[in-house]
């Protein structure tokens, strides 16, 4: 069976967890990978905890079960760290990428996290400066590309530009702002 990278995105309704998973999958697909992206559907309310998922592989993906034991967890909203379930099922050598202004060691100590590899990036500040709004999902993509090394950065940015132009073609400031936010997060993400 092919190796499949599984990713779980945690966010709050309205933060773009579903869109982030979709963007990542589209970029990976354009790079020749086989992909899945799907959200968890429940009662949809702005601000409620939500999750979405990716599977990415070099071979066709057949499994259709939910993702329960991911290699990577991405947390779009740091307040979700306190709910205690974001690391559920995460592989022991898995990585967790958090939107936070604090550094990984600080998060580890404060929340008493053992194991895993922690990355942080201040996606709220980045998106506020680049886009004028707190939309942490696209900058988190930059952090994911950097932390996982799953795709070539330049190829990823080219694909993101294409996808963003498809969605926001008539609004170059949104396309460029998102690209700037992704680039900054890629550069600013902190490892332990």
């Amino acid at each position: 069976m092919a190796e499949i990278l599984e990713i779980r995105w945690h966010g709050r309704g309205g933060q773009g967890a579903k869109t982030a998973a979709t963007f990542l999958a589209e970029a990976a697909s354009s790079a020749g990978r086989f992909i899945q992206a799907f959200p968890e559907y429940g009662p949809e309310r702005m601000g409620a905890p939500v999750a979405s998922f990716n599977r990415i592989s070099t071979e066709p993906i057949r499994i259709r079960s939910g993702v329960t034991d991911p290699e990577v967890v991405v947390v779009l909203d740091p307040t979700l760290m306190r709910t205690g379930n974001v690391t559920s099922g995460l592989k022991p050598d898995g990585i967790i990428i958090i939107n936070s202004e604090r550094d990984p060691a600080d998060i580890r100590e404060q929340l008493g996290i053992e194991g895993f590899q922690i990355f942080t990036v201040d996606a709220n500040t980045i998106s506020t400066e680049a886009l004028g709004r707190r939309i942490p999902n696209t900058p988190m993509l930059g952090a994911v590309i950097r932390a996982t090394g799953m795709l070539d950065y330049d190829a990823f940015m080219e694909n993101m530009e294409l996808e963003l132009k498809k969605k926001f073609g008539g609004r170059p400031e949104i396309v460029n702002g998102n690209l700037e936010a992704i680039r900054r997060a890629y550069e600013e993400v902190q490892a332990e």
Partner: peptide, 12 residues
């Protein structure tokens, strides 16, 4: 096609 599992999942 299976609801959500296929209908709402991005696939190649």
């Amino acid at each position: 096609q299976d609801g959500f599992i296929i209908s709402h999942a991005l696939d190649n």
